[in-house]
Write a protein that binds this DNA or RNA. Structure first.
Length: 423
RNA sequence: GGAGAAAUGGCAGAGUGGUCGAAUGCGGCAGUCUUGAAAACUGUUGAGGGUCACACCUCCGGGGGUUCGAAUCCCUCUUUCUCCGCCA
């Protein structure tokens, strides 16, 4: 959520920047500023009324203590209209505040200078590419067929016990998955991140804090009986651990990592692109989250990108990095880099990580601030990224590492798996 | 699930209708003293809005109510603790 004073100070610049998302917010901004000024003037009137009535109350108190009951009662009568006025004004104030809030909720984050204009994924900008795309046999199979051939993932069993998009991992498939989780967590810890195990359900306030609510209500599973949401990513519980906090500048940066399952409703298309592990309702992910000083956040973002690169390099998977264009950029993000691994058997790129800087957009909703070296309270910058999302990494390994004799496990994973081939 | 108790500033802990944004202690910060430090002493020390700066307004777990006036009374929700029951 943007701050009103930011909109006021950078109106034209923001309008221009948001046009990269294909949005024209000039009208919305005018409404925001009008709503804010109404809010302020109503607040001022209310304050005045309350001040008056407070001073009467104090006077009445004194009169009662000195026993001047007559005078006190006379004064009481004068508070009646003040009371009515303040009631009306406070109703007007909450209406004005709510209107402002609703407007602000509709405005996405301001794209960073580097974000290219564009409407969809075709306008994303490739910034880096690494790793060799293997030449596979003509009999090379997509991962869902490999999964069946080696009996390591059972999609039908998941359908039976839950529904489509909830696979069952089996035998070496399950062990490889567990190995990946441990390996990713170890890499993150090695890079200085602190590991957390967090709840897999969150309350409404947490959903608002990181911006899943109210914008993407339908994407989360909602447990209505208890009014809780299944997390779509560890970002939600991890970032919300700090909701409402006032940190000291020397506590920054705060760096967290955590493994959680992720639940996404993703109501939508079915077909080849969502086959197998490509898109699931439940999947595993290891997340990294950083809370940074505003001056350090972009350096931190670059650091996160380098960190993820290091992991993919070790896994020897062919991947590329995209800088998301305005149209593809998430609602809450200012700058996002997507990592995609090449799925050789499907001949397409699969997203396996998304690393973003949210600047103060989440921090403003979270009321997450720090005291800077001048003793002033400022909003922090929040960042997060996947390091990494499991299913598509698994798909990438299965497809790219297949040989006529079986699937060769990347060397770095062998100590974690306890085997070096799936056959 | 049943019965009871509680929720106050960074922490501990007073405060049961008016001068309480809140005693006191600890911690933090500044100063005196000291070669330096410690101790002692003195001062200072919550957040948000508002203003050029004041004034002023709001906040004592959340929400609502009574009252001229609420940390204090009432209702409600949440959380924590104790006891009982159940249980991985």
């Amino acid at each position: 959520m943007l701050q009103v004073h930011e909109i006021q100070e950078n109106k034209e610049e923001y309008i221009k920047a948001l046009s990269k998302r294909g949005l024209d917010v000039s009208e919305t901004f005018d409404k925001v500023l009008a709503a804010d000024s109404l809010r302020r003037s109503t607040q001022a009137k209310l304050d005045e009324t309350l001040a008056q009535s407070n001073s009467y109350s104090k006077e009445i108190g004194k009169l009662f203590q000195t026993g001047e009951t007559e005078k006190a009662n006379a004064l009481k009568e004068r508070t009646v209209t003040l009371k009515e006025t303040s009631k009306i004004l406070s109703e007007q104030l909450s209406a004005a505040s709510e209107e402002l809030q609703l407007l602000l909720y509709t405005i996405p984050n301001i794209p960073h200078k580097l974000v290219p204009a564009g409407t969809d994924e075709n306008d994303n900008e490739e910034t880096f590419r690494e790793g060799e795309i293997p030449t596979l046999d003509t009999e090379a199979l997509p991962h869902w067929e490999l999964a069946k051939k080696y009996d390591i993932i059972d999609f039908e069993l998941g359908v039976k016990i839950t529904g489509a998009g909830f696979p069952v991992y089996k035998g070496k498939g399950a062990r490889l998955q567990r190995a990946l989780i441990s390996y990713f967590l170890d890499k993150n810890i090695e890079a200085g991140y602190t590991e957390f195990q967090v709840p897999h359900m969150v309350n409404e306030a947490s959903g608002f804090g990181t911006g899943q609510l109210p914008d993407k209500e339908g994407q989360m599973y909602h447990i209505t009986a208890d009014d809780l949401y299944l997390i779509p990513t560890a970002e939600v519980p991890v970032t919300n651990m700090f909701r409402g906090d006032l940190l000291m500048h020397n506590e920054l940066p705060i760096t967290c990592t955590g493994y959680t399952p992720c639940f996404r409703r993703e109501a939508g298309s079915y077909g080849a692109h969502v086959r197998g592990l490509n898109r699931l309702h439940q999947f595993d992910k290891v997340e990294i989250v950083r809370i940074e000083h505003p001056d350090a956040s972009y350096e931190a973002l670059d650091g996160m990108v380098e960190h993820v690169k290091g992991i993919l390099r070790e896994l020897k998977l062919p991947y590329r990095i995209l800088r998301l264009c305005g149209g593809d950029l998430g609602f809450t993000s200012a700058l996002t880099y997507d990592f995609e691994v090449f799925s050789t058997a499907q001949d397409r790129w699969l997203e396996i990580s998304s690393v973003s800087n949210f600047e103060t957009f989440q921090a403003n909703r979270l009321k997450l601030r720090f005291k800077d070296s001048d003793g002033k309270n400022q909003l922090v910058h929040t960042l997060n990224g996947s390091a990494l999302a499991l299913p598509r990494v698994l798909a990438g390994i299965l497809e790219n590492c297949q040989t006529p004799n079986g699937i060769k496990i990347p060397e770095v994973l062998v100590p974690y798996c306890g085997f070096d081939i799936i056959d």
